[in-house]
Simulated scan of single mutants.
Amino acid sequence: MNWRSRLLLTTLVFATLLTFTAEAIAHAVTEGDKGYIQEISGVNLLPFVYLGAKHMMTGYDHILFLFGVIFFLYRMKHIAIYVSLFALGHSTTMILGVYLNVGINSYVIDAIIGLSVVYKALDNIGAFQRWLGFQPNTKVATLVFGLFHGCGLATKILEYEISPDGLVPNLLAFNVGVELGQLMALAVILIVMGYWRRTRSFLRHAYSANVVMMSLGFMLVGYQLTGFFVS
Rank of each mutant, 00 (worst) to 15 (best):
G32H: 13
P164G: 00
Q129S: 10
I81N: 02
L46K: 10
F71I: 02
T199H: 08
I81D: 07
H27W: 09
I191V: 15
A111V: 08
N2E: 10
L17D: 10
Y207G: 01
V168D: 00
R200N: 13
W196L: 15
V102A: 08
E159M: 12
N105V: 02
L96P: 05
S41Y: 06
L100R: 01
G68H: 00
G227Q: 08
Y223T: 02
G150H: 06
Q224H: 14
T226S: 10
A87P: 03
M219E: 06
G217Q: 07
L96I: 14
G146S: 08
E159G: 13
G89R: 01
L9R: 12
I37H: 02
N2A: 05
F67D: 06
G194A: 10
G89Q: 05
A154I: 08
L7W: 07
Q135I: 09
V69F: 02
S41C: 09
F48Q: 04
V69S: 00
L143Y: 09
F229H: 02
G35Y: 02
I70G: 04
I157F: 12
G222Y: 02
G52L: 05
M213F: 11
E31V: 12
L183W: 10
I63D: 04
L180V: 15
G166C: 09
I37W: 11
N170Y: 04
T30S: 15
L9I: 10
F228E: 05
G89V: 07
L147N: 01
D33V: 14
F86C: 05
Y207M: 07
A173N: 06
S163E: 06
A28Q: 13
S116K: 08
M1T: 12
L88H: 04
G59E: 11
S5R: 08
I113P: 02
H27E: 09
F65A: 11
F48D: 03
A187E: 00
S201H: 11
G177W: 03
K77G: 14
I191K: 09
E179Q: 13
V69I: 15
T19F: 14
Y207C: 00
A80K: 02
V83G: 01
Q224S: 13
T92M: 13
Q224C: 05
A187W: 13
S163D: 15
L51M: 15
F20E: 04
G166T: 06
L66T: 05
R130W: 05
I37V: 15
Q224M: 12
H27D: 14
A206L: 01
F134D: 11
G42R: 06
D110T: 10
P136R: 04
H27M: 12
V83K: 01
A206H: 11
V29P: 07
Q135T: 14
A173H: 03
F71W: 15
Q129L: 03
L172F: 14
L18P: 06
L18A: 13
M213E: 00
M76P: 03
V221N: 01
K156W: 00
L73D: 06
